[in-house]
Design a protein around this nucleic acid. Structure first.
Lengths: 181, 181
DNA sequence: ATGGTCTGTTCTTTATATCGAACATATGTT
DNA sequence: AACATATGTTCGATATAAAGAACAGACCAT
């Protein structure tokens, strides 16, 4: 896929998400609306300054416009997964996710009690969350496709859409790795 | 900081890292070396196709050229268990470790039974391991300074020396994040 | 309907990014 | 020394991205 096509799609998508017209966005970004119109049609070869202006006006990083959205949701149950290190039979290491190039991965611990579900608003485009349940039971994932998770389960999903975490048992604990490219 | 300056710095830095000359890189990327030369001087306003070609030739994503290097003093470390996300009282997120630049972080799940300690030989220099105990009890860390860990504990240590993981209780589970820079 | 304000498109003009060649300097070879 | 092959630079010609205006269509008001 050529860069211009990715950008064309991304700009259109983000602009619609923001409910902005071509004119409004071009004005906000201080570029000609003809430039923006052609860009969305996949015509030409925009300069970095143009992309920068558009991304700023949209309140997103430039990389959100040039990286193609990737990754599907993936669930690995407690007893599943590729075992990669097993020199000893009492020590099992399962690779859940290899880090893609140039990704940043921050590590969190979650302590959640039964109550209102935690609804997170979308993170920047391309953001992925990795969730591993340590204790308890949770309903988590994209808000339109959450999954029931038990201790040991590993679930990764796109976090650039609204997503949910709800404890279904008291004292539910989890590891959360937030990955942004 | 203007985008062209960020790009100029990034291209020069990555090119040197790859031990490529201006001529060599321009040839690899199929662009005029004058274009590359001026770009590295911070002159002009490169097009996305030019950046794309350069990034491809360097084997890095375009975003690596346009993302400004993260300031290293802006993040409060989580070593004291700083709570960073707490909009709801029943949901506590604790930042354990923010990802440094250019690090790769692979995610593993460990299932370990009581028995011989697992002794891992040194990983490449700079490798760091992050360990979070989900269940059971473990003795883990560098072989000369292991620590007793209980569920919920987070321990990070240099893995470029021999290190150990020993289950002290049956059915000990942990999350392991291996980070190499 | 008639004017007004939107929508996004297609023009022309101008500014400039890219190319390729010519240009210096430097390092090494015979 | 003279030559060869690197390095990165600057130059003029050309392609083209961007700006701005003109454009057609949709929608709402009076």
């Amino acid at each position: 896929m050529k860069p211009i096509e990715i950008i064309a799609d991304a700009v259109l998508r983000e602009r619609n998400k923001m409910n902005l017209s071509v004119s409004a966005l071009s004005k906000k970004a201080n570029i000609a609306k003809s430039t923006l119109s052609q860009l969305e049609q996949g015509i030409g070869n925009p300069s970095i300054e143009t992309l920068w202006a558009i991304a700023n006006a949209l309140g997103i990083p430039v990389s959100a416009l040039i990286e193609k959205p990737k990754s599907r949701n993936h669930l690995i149950r407690a007893n599943e997964g590729l075992i990669v290190l097993s020199e000893q039979k009492n020590y099992i290491a399962t690779l859940l996710s290899a880090c893609p190039q140039n990704a940043r991965r921050d590590i969190y611990r979650l302590n959640v009690e039964i109550g209102n579900p935690k609804i997170s608003s979308p993170h920047p485009i391309g953001t992925i969350e990795h969730l591993i349940i340590s204790n308890g039971k949770a309903l988590a994932g994209p808000i339109d496709a959450p999954v029931e998770l038990y201790p040991g389960d590993y679930f990764t999903y796109s976090a650039d859409v609204p997503h949910i975490f709800e404890a279904l048992e008291p004292d539910t604990n989890a590891m959360l790795v937030i990955e942004c490219t």
